[in-house]
C-alpha cells in the first residue's frame, strides 16, 4: 500500500478535495430522458456483497461508462440490467419497462455484448449473425451489420479463424442486429491491441451518433474518457465518484501530476512533508521508486523541486509531468490502480 499524504479521505491537508465526495452517490428520481436507470442495486453472493447499492441513469443518446478494477462488480451490475441476474434489492427500469414483467419487450429493444461469450467455432460470421437475427421480430439486414463491424472480408470465415478484435466486433454485431435502443457492452476491448480497440470504439460511436444509448463497463480510463458522456467509478460494489470524465478529473483539484525518482537514493530521500510544503503541491504519494505529486502551477513546483534536490546533493531521474487522468483520480480515491484488481 503506497503511503499517502493529503490524497484520499479525511486528511486535513486535502482541502481541495472537499467538494469531491467519494461514494456520495445516491440519486433522486430518474430523469425523464433516462433510457436506463438503476436505484439502490444490491447483489450478494453468500457473504460477499458484490454490488452494494449502486445508482445511475443512462440518459438517452448518451454513453454511461462504469469504470472499475477487476472484481469491482461491473459485470454483476450490467448483468442485472440485462435481466440475466436478479437483483437482491433495488430497482431497474429499462426503456420504461421492468424485468419480470416485460422481458420479451425489453429483449427486443436491447443489444447485449457479454464479457466472455465464445461463439461457436465452426459457424461462419454470417451464419452466427443469421442465427441471432432469427430471434428478433425485426432485424437489420445482415450485410449492413457486417459492414458496420467491418467484417466484409470475413463474411464466410469460421469464427475460430477470427482474431480477438474481429471476434469482439462480431459480438457487437450480434448486439446491433435488432437495431436496439440501448447497447450494453461489458469490457468490449479488454485484451485487444490499440488498433483493434479503436475499431471497436468507432462502432460504438457510430451507434451513439444514430441516437442510441450505451451502458459500457471498462477498466481502461482511455476508453471511458473517449466514449463516456457520464461516468461512474465503482470499487467494491459502490459508486465512489460520478460525473462527466472532465468533471471527475477536475474534482481532483490538480492542474497536473508530477512524477520523479532519484539516482541512487531511496524514495524518501526527500521527506514528504518538505514536498507538501512546496507552493502548489496538493498531495504526495509514493509509487514504487517514484514520488507522485498532484500540483497546481507546474512550473513553480518544478523549480521548487529542483531546489530541494540540489540542497540535498541528489540527482533527479525520470522527471515527468502529465495532465491528471481518471487513473489518478482512481488512485487518489482507492490507493489502487485500475488494473491492479
Amino acid at each position: 500500500m503506497p503511503g499517502f499524504r493529503g490524497w484520499g479521505q479525511g486528511d486535513a491537508m486535502s482541502t481541495t478535495m472537499t467538494d469531491f465526495e467519494p461514494g456520495a452517490g445516491a440519486l433522486g428520481d430518474p430523469p425523464a430522458d433516462a433510457a436506463v436507470s438503476a436505484r439502490g442495486l444490491v447483489k450478494r453472493y453468500g457473504d460477499l456483497t458484490a454490488v452494494d447499492g449502486i445508482d445511475f441513469d443512462v440518459r438517452r443518446g448518451t454513453c454511461l461508462g462504469v469504470l472499475g478494477p477487476n472484481g469491482a462488480g461491473k459485470t454483476t451490475t450490467i448483468e442485472m440490467l440485462e435481466g440475466i441476474k436478479r437483483a437482491d434489492d433495488g430497482e431497474i427500469v429499462v426503456l420504461g419497462m421492468r424485468w419480470g414483467k416485460d422481458d420479451r419487450a425489453i429483449q427486443e429493444r436491447i443489444g447485449v455484448q457479454l464479457q466472455e461469450t465464445e461463439f461457436q467455432d465452426k459457424l461462419s460470421v454470417h451464419e452466427t449473425l443469421r442465427l441471432f437475427a432469427s430471434f428478433f421480430e425485426n432485424s437489420a439486414p445482415l450485410d449492413e451489420i457486417i459492414e458496420i463491424i467491418g467484417l466484409e472480408e470475413k463474411r464466410t470465415a469460421f469464427v475460430k479463424t477470427l482474431s480477438g478484435g474481429q471476434k469482439q466486433r462480431l459480438s457487437i454485431g450480434c448486439a446491433l442486429l435488432n437495431n436496439p435502443d440501448v447497447l450494453f457492452l461489458d469490457e468490449p476491448t479488454t485484451g485487444l491491441d490499440p488498433q483493434a480497440r479503436r475499431r471497436v470504439w468507432d462502432v460504438v460511436e457510430t451507434f451513439k451518433a444514430g441516437g442510441g444509448s450505451v451502458l459500457l463497463t471498462t477498466h481502461y480510463m482511455e476508453e471511458a474518457e473517449r466514449l463516456a458522456d457520464d461516468l461512474i467509478i465503482v470499487d467494491h460494489g459502490k459508486v465512489i465518484a460520478r460525473g462527466s470524465p472532465a468533471s471527475i478529473i477536475a474534482s481532483l483539484g490538480a492542474e497536473s501530476v508530477v512524477q520523479f525518482s532519484m539516482v541512487d537514493a531511496a524514495v524518501d530521500a526527500i521527506e514528504e512533508a518538505h514536498l507538501l510544503a512546496l507552493e502548489g503541491v496538493n498531495a504526495v504519494r509514493v509509487e514504487g521508486s517514484s514520488m507522485v505529486l498532484s500540483v497546481t502551477g507546474t512550473q513553480g513546483v518544478i523549480s521548487g523541486l529542483f531546489a530541494l534536490v540540489d540542497e540535498r546533493g541528489l540527482d533527479l531521474e525520470d522527471l515527468r509531468t502529465h495532465r491528471p487522468t481518471l487513473e489518478d483520480v482512481f488512485v487518489a480515491l482507492t490507493g489502487k490502480h485500475l488494473r491492479d484488481g
Partner: peptide
Amino acid sequence: RKFLKRMLVTPM
C-alpha cells in the same frame, strides 16, 4: 462458452 447465456438475453 457462455453462448447459452448470450442467447438467453435475446427474445429466443
